[in-house]
């Protein structure tokens, strides 16, 4: 999941969270989680002055942002003292799977 400015959103991206007016976490959502964005929907959100949205995956990369491989390498370093502990190594496996799943393949990435 990634929070991106509305102006960087494109049709085909999927909402990871409900969208509220003015980033307010309360009140009625103006668009529901799991909705796939379309050009007309983006125009409507813009009209409602929504500034940012949460989308599935990690579609936009800013300059200097770490790749999935670098993030996994950092994860290994953080776990280096506990890799042989059965309970903590479970957590390492869960985190590795989570990061691979949520960040996906970072090749051919689009820069913000």
């Amino acid at each position: 999941m990634q929070k991106i400015p509305l102006m960087c959103a494109t049709s085909g991206m999927k909402l990871a969270r409900d969208v509220f007016r003015n980033d307010s976490p309360v009140g009625m959502p103006v668009c529901g989680k799991d909705t796939v964005l379309t050009d007309s929907l983006l125009a409507r959100l813009d009209h409602l002055e929504v500034k940012s949205i949460y989308v599935e995956g990690h579609p936009l990369w800013s300059e200097g942002e770490k790749t999935l491989d670098e993030i996994l390498c950092d994860l290994d370093l953080r776990f280096e003292k506990v890799r042989n502990d059965p309970l903590t190594s479970k957590l390492h496996s869960i985190y590795t799977a989570f990061l691979k799943n949520s960040m996906g393949d970072s090749s051919g990435r689009q820069t913000l």
Partner: peptide
């Protein structure tokens, strides 16, 4: 930078399992 070991007593007292831990990681992120 080092992750501490999950203590067995904490795992037992909270009655954790792999499924709960996976859900916790996803919700925490």
């Amino acid at each position: 930078r080092y992750v501490p070991q999950i203590q067995k007593i904490a795992w037992d007292v909270l009655k954790l399992n792999d499924e709960i831990l996976t859900e916790l990681v996803e919700e925490l992120e």
